[in-house]
Amino acid sequence: MGILDFFNGTKATSKDIAKERLKVVLIHDRTDIPPAVMEQLRDEILDVIAKYVDFDRDAVDIRLDRENRLSQLVAEIPLRESPRSRRKR
């Protein structure tokens, strides 16, 4: 869920915005990865994966996430089905 989601649906209260901003700032505080470096990391990961599989670059979601005080790098990369698997059906 991103900041934008709030504006699409019901009107965000100021505390919703506060919470969303806090989550983002804390992830960067704790991992010490600035947004620009994150962008570079994302591009390099995708370049490597693109060598082996076919996927839609626009559908990719790579982000830093945090649960129970542990930060993790989460990547969701939906793959395109290969022509062979389509033929099987």
Partner: peptide
């Protein structure tokens, strides 16, 4: 009225 982080919000963020 949604203008202050609730206890649950703060605990959710700080864990």
């Amino acid at each position: 009225r949604g203008d202050m982080l609730s206890t649950d919000d703060v605990l959710d963020v700080l864990a």
